[in-house]
Design a protein around this nucleic acid. Structure first.
Lengths: 224, 224
DNA sequence: AGTAATTGTGAGCTTATTTTGAAAATACAG
DNA sequence: CTGTATTTTCAAAATAAGCTCACAATTACT
């Protein structure tokens, strides 16, 4: 996830600020709302990926807000409450809350639950097994490589080689290192073999073959 | 969901019995396992919709089990633990647990969390009795497969193989993984066996046999 | 138990990939 | 510019992986 947007809805300023601090330290973008109706009106503008809602709020309580919000969107939602009573937990989860945190909580718990909820909610949309770098896209799950959306058909060694180089783009690897990493500890192949695979890789990458650069006297590197 | 199956994995008999009692009263079907490896071997046979796993167990702890289980399936999982420490929570949620309950808990909380997790996990899936992908239709209830509306008569292993591949279309599986998933943990068959079944599958699928692709050096995948 | 259907195996065959070595091309240093 | 070191290229040879098939073993059905 590039830039995850979280909306915090709580009437207590101190709590909002605290959560904002935790989240921003971890790279999230945070919007605040002081009450439910304010939050509802912001939904469309800010398009958050996650809502964190205090249960106890004046005017519109967290549960009512959750009901409304679920009608408008399918944004995942975490309840926040000082009341640890069981009834609230059940009520919250049944209304479509995706998780429930009892105040006071530790920063780590908040972050872990946020991650967990986001992972679940965006599980199918998010390609967590994909590496994109420049025009290149490497999908480990389907074992496919795409260059500007057109698929490249690579053999195993080619795939491994490109993978190492692209994953650590900018870093130079000697042929020996590449043999070690792609072929294995006990490789017995000559360094010429690497050259040949680099050649076919460049060939298959066509115009973009120059993404793999030769570092004279040292080895190869991937550079965007 | 017709009949929801829950597998409870805990070494303490008392805890298992208690959870079983709660759940059965609410209409769930419950299987028990006393340890992680036992549970893993039961997964294929019992096909639970949800796993409830104690973190502290002899031989294979809950986290290790969760890791293994997530490789084999996407069954949602709730951790159960007496240890309320933050580290455990984070660890559990990061390993793909869908929720976390601290013992002792109240029956109502357990049920609410179970419902919540199940609702999330099976929210987007349709009736979940039928899988359609490309020209293929797999009906789990009648154990029937149709290709462009004309029925395919598949044997059990063929069905299992096609099912895994189609359900996770795009994903490459090694022969070993397929043996593991379709034949079971304790398979003793050679990898050639997979080849043979793939062959007959392709044969039966006629023109669409190429839906199952060979990924050279890796295994097979289903690709539309 | 007897029969049919399904599943498993291994060996030969086919095909794709990998390796190699030597010649040609290129880069660098002085 | 020249000589040397390094890289690139190529096609043939070696290797590895996949496919097929006939038949053996197992399982399911009556």
């Amino acid at each position: 996830m590039k830039q995850t947007i979280v909306m915090v809805i709580d009437d207590e300023e101190q709590m909002r600020k605290m959560i904002r601090a935790f989240l921003e330290k971890d790279g999230y973008t945070v919007f605040e709302a002081t009450n439910g109706s304010h939050a509802l009106s912001l939904l469309n503008k800010t398009k958050p990926h996650l809502l964190i809602v205090d249960v106890m709020m004046p005017f519109m309580d967290g549960f009512t807000f959750a009901q409304e919000a679920k009608l408008l969107s399918s944004i995942p939602l975490i309840f926040l409450s000082a009341k640890g009573e069981e009834w609230d937990k059940i009520h919250g989860l049944k209304l479509g809350g995706d998780d429930y945190i009892v105040k006071p909580f530790m920063p780590g718990e908040l972050l872990a639950r946020i991650e967990s909820v986001l992972r679940r909610a965006y599980a199918n949309k998010e390609d967590s097994n994909v590496l994109t770098i420049g025009p290149l896209l490497i999908d480990y799950v389907s074992h496919q490589v795409k260059l500007n959306d057109s698929p490249l058909s690579l053999t195993r060694k080619e795939f491994g080689l490109l993978n190492i180089l692209a994953k650590n783009s900018g870093r130079v690897y000697s042929r020996e290192q590449l043999l070690h990493l792609v072929w294995g500890e006990d490789h017995k192949s000559s360094e010429r073999t690497v050259d040949t695979h680099i050649k076919t890789l460049r060939l298959k990458m066509g115009d973009h073959g120059n993404l793999i650069e030769t570092v004279w006297g040292i080895g190869y590197k991937f550079e965007v």
